[in-house]
Design a binder for these strands. Sequence first.
DNA 1: AACACGGGGCG
DNA 2: CGCCCAGTGTT
Length: 342
Amino acid sequence: MGEVGDRLLAWYDRHARTLPWRTPPGSGEAPDPYRVWLSEIMLQQTTVAAVGPYFAKFTERWPTLQALAAEDDAEVLSAWAGLGYYARARNLIACARTVADGGGAFPDTEEGLRELPGVGAYTAAAIAAIAFDRRAVVVDANVERVVARLFAIREPLPAAKPSIRAAADEITPDRRAGDFAQAMMDLGSGICTVRDPKCLLCPLSDLCVARAEGIAENLPAKTPKKAKPVRQGTAFWVERDGHVLLVTRPGKGMLAGMRALPDDGWSARADGDGEPPLDGDWQHVEGTVRHGFTHFTLEMQVRRLTAQGSHPKGEWWPIDRVEAEAGLPTLFLRAAQLVLRG
DNA sequence: AACACGGGGCG
DNA sequence: CGCCCAGTGTT
């Protein structure tokens, strides 16, 4: 089945996307493992478009692994704000320090990479292939879709993962590991798309069983997801002398370790719900922030108070810099904008 | 195996 | 508005 590899690599030579963490096919340039790793962590469960500005910011500010490893946690988390899945940022820091302490070079095998924080099966395979030209079976959501269609695997995900991986192993060539992995992703991203696949442009269309059977767009099948509940919550805007009170969220749970407005726990706690951070004449702020999380939707109200005197916990942040510099996750940025802009 | 974990973009 | 995306870690 070297046919798939040959065709896909030839297609990639002509149609590879130009991306900041990529070296062009056939250029002979070895990619920087630091940049490959950084891009792969950022790209977990998000899109190339979303990552672009963050990758540029991170590589400009921390051009090397050593620079990143030496940075304060809060600075890195703040730079990550808005990208989501904040455990990735904490693992990024932990991984950078692990590698830096170990001499500064990334492991160059899948097994070695797999030991690092934030590096799972997919990322270990991807880095081994792209940065170190190791043959590895790289299976992300793009590859799952391409392979499920190519072999017409009808079993729904996630149960079909082992079958899909075995099929992906069959078509993975023994050469140009990184190019093949990235070619599969480009194919899945631009041609073998979830809806309306561009089969007429696909270099594999005449090998594709699902295409022959007319079911390409219906694959891969997925087991139905549970409906997302809606939760209610309140955020508190406490103002004093041109400053607003910010807190740092706990190290575990939603938006862990991120700077935030005080809130009431969003109906998530058994006790203490609805408690403002201090007593006073709270004013209702017009509007609602609706924010989608992976497994629920949050509808958050905002209440505001002008405080006097000191407050024991939290930091007072200049209001005119809170939007640009506080590193608030999007939920709390929207809440702040409700107060500041209506 | 199931769940927790963000955010934005698409039809 | 529902679905999806270069997944990982925990239980």
